[in-house]
Design a protein around this nucleic acid. Structure first.
Lengths: 216, 216
DNA sequence: TCTCGTTTAGTCGATATCGACTATACAGTC
DNA sequence: GACTGTATAGTCGATATCGACTAAACGAGA
């Protein structure tokens, strides 16, 4: 099981990583993450960033260094990592690399209830998904190519290669599923069709009355 | 982009799915989900369930039907889905099946900062991950086999096949990464080693003093 | 020099989430 | 017939999260 982190949001890991390099103010963290494409691997919201930074400070993992003022811009607090912060960063990172965490992808939730859709509809939705997945794949590929063109070593783009591998697996898997549904080789298909051939119209009828009844 | 759902927790989808079949009280939803293995695809916490059920009721997607009392047990509220609930369920489900959502797997976050660990350590952590992934794979396989043995049609276990495909891709990908690091064919490796060969001992030294300084 | 869009830099409040805690009933067993 | 563990059925408070909103500074063009 994953250790409970003092600041659980993975954005905190990114903040620690950035401050490991050098002190920074929050806004600079955002721009740096964007420049390096790290906002693709760690969810970055402004509001979360500021609360994460506050929490890290409370926990003594980072400390405010100075408050600068560039021109007549509002002042910015520059933060630095502490020794405790370095320890937490490395410990967390090791765990993330070593231990596969149980996750709940949205598509898995969708698949869980796939049988609630009539087979023909499921089929066309899955086909549309393939198209959308391919679009995403080419965008990730594009990002990788651009990074390489800029001379970024592969080591620093490795997470996008991982993402690509997952997306490619998904597209192939969905493709295979589509083929199986079309070929009728998926076990339970007959029941699935039969079920929807009755309940579809009936359910719609009943649900209208039912809806009324239930809402009063 | 994903539509904002009135009750965003995917557990709400599961609740709607269950009530689509028949009215139930919350505790029964938990046991039913467990029996069917749906707690592997949708994160199920007691406390979340109750707040989700409340929110669904406020939104008019479900309604309390009756409060039963089995024996002298505390009373339980049985809920039923409304027409609005059926609409929301199907709409949400269609979207989940059709549109790939951007997600942030923990491992991707870890990989983003892999270079912060010395290569030799990264290597051994990745090797441990392979082992742990294989353990998880055999557990998922076991679950699938058990489901089939109980006569559950594949259609209702499809999400586990998806999970398996992702896990297998990950294990293969990590394996390939390990090989590349070992072979030294990963671009940036030389710099990576060089960097850690200085900064490792220095960083530890400096960070001790540094930590003091920063903490006062 | 006016103004308008963009970049810089955040704040705030409403919700969502989750772990820890509570409490009764029943089944088995000594 | 007392005792204990497990299944049943939740509650509550502390945090976390996120979208919507704010607001100054600056550059470019009219």
């Amino acid at each position: 099981m994953a250790t409970k982190r003092t600041v659980p949001n993975p954005l905190a890991l990114a903040v620690l990583a950035l401050l490991y390099e050098r002190p920074m103010h929050p806004y600079e963290m955002v721009t740096t993450m964007r420049e390096r494409g790290k906002h693709e691997s760690v969810k970055l919201r402004y509001s979360s960033l500021y609360s994460v930074v506050e929490a890290l400070e409370r926990a003594g993992l980072i400390v405010p260094r100075e408050t600068e003022r560039a021109g007549r811009r509002p002042e910015r607090t520059v933060y630095a990592i502490t020794e405790a912060g370095r320890v937490e960063f490395l410990d967390w990172l090791r765990e993330l690399v070593r231990v596969p965490e149980k996750e709940y992808p949205r598509f898995m939730a969708g698949l869980s209830f796939l049988a609630a859709l009539p087979p023909s509809e499921a089929l066309s939705l899955l086909k549309e998904r393939i198209q959308l997945l391919e679009d995403r794949i080419s965008r990730v590929r594009g990002g990788l190519a651009q990074g390489r063109a800029l001379g970024v070593p592969r080591l620093f783009l490795i997470e996008h290669e991982y993402e690509l591998a997952l997306l490619e697996t998904e597209v192939a898997w969905v493709h295979a599923l589509v083929k199986e549904i079309e070929a009728g080789t998926i076990e339970g298909l007959h029941l699935w069709e039969l079920f929807h051939s009755w309940t579809e119209p009936v359910a719609v009828e009943r649900s209208r009355e039912g809806g009324r009844d239930e809402l009063r």
